[in-house]
Amino acid sequence: MWKYANPTFFLTLVDRVLPWLAAATAALMAAGLYMTFFVAPADYQQGDAVRIMYIHVPSAWLSMFCYMTMAASALGTLVWRHPLADAAQKAAAPLGAAFTFVCLVTGSLWGKPMWGTWWVWDARLTSVLVLFLIYLGLIALWQTIEEPGKAARAAAILTLVGVVNIPIIKFSVDWWNTLHQPASVFRAGGPTIAPSMLWPLLVMALAFTLLFISLHLMATRNEILRRRLHRLTMLAANAADGGQADLRFADMEV
């Protein structure tokens, strides 16, 4: 397992896997979009607006999946202090924020024709909004702490605190929502979804997941390269002025 965690090995692995992954993503995305617009039927209540579901639900799923990826990497950072885990964690935060944003915006655009309003303080919308805020906080933390190792550990701690707290937030927002039952007509997401709608949804979800994995691998590769560049610049500066430069980052195994 450690062989795969070696950053140099990881870079060659990414270079080899990425073209295939990108091709699979493109093919699935094309198939999913085709099914969304030409195969899936219009809902008998919602009409064609239900097609927004095929990007809304996959991005909602990814907003969770990305957080789980980040939490797993956070464990890697704190337990094994692995630079690859640091890079994976840093790469995941903006992606998670982007997909959560897409989830919120598409939900809003779906809500306007269906509920007649851009935003309701519905339990699900509200907890996704809080998740979005947590992502933004993590990104701000990454940007504020300069030293990469320290930033990674701080972000890891916050991410793991979030793992404990997000279910609590979800529960309390649900409780709050039943307390102030809004007048909206949002039914509790029916599990009885017709197969003709389920298949396009599954294809789109898979396409989005592959898209996230490709983007995440690329962004992780960038972070590794950025650290390497940082270290080499330090070493070069050190060689230039005869060993006086700050060598704090130089011993980092990257």
């Binding site: 064609d48 607006a49 915006v105 655009l109």
Partner: peptide, 14 residues
């Protein structure tokens, strides 16, 4: 297609 504007906007933004 009804609500075409909303659908196009959602997919375009995403």
């Amino acid at each position: 297609m009804d609500h075409a504007g909303y659908i196009i906007a959602a997919f375009a933004i995403a």
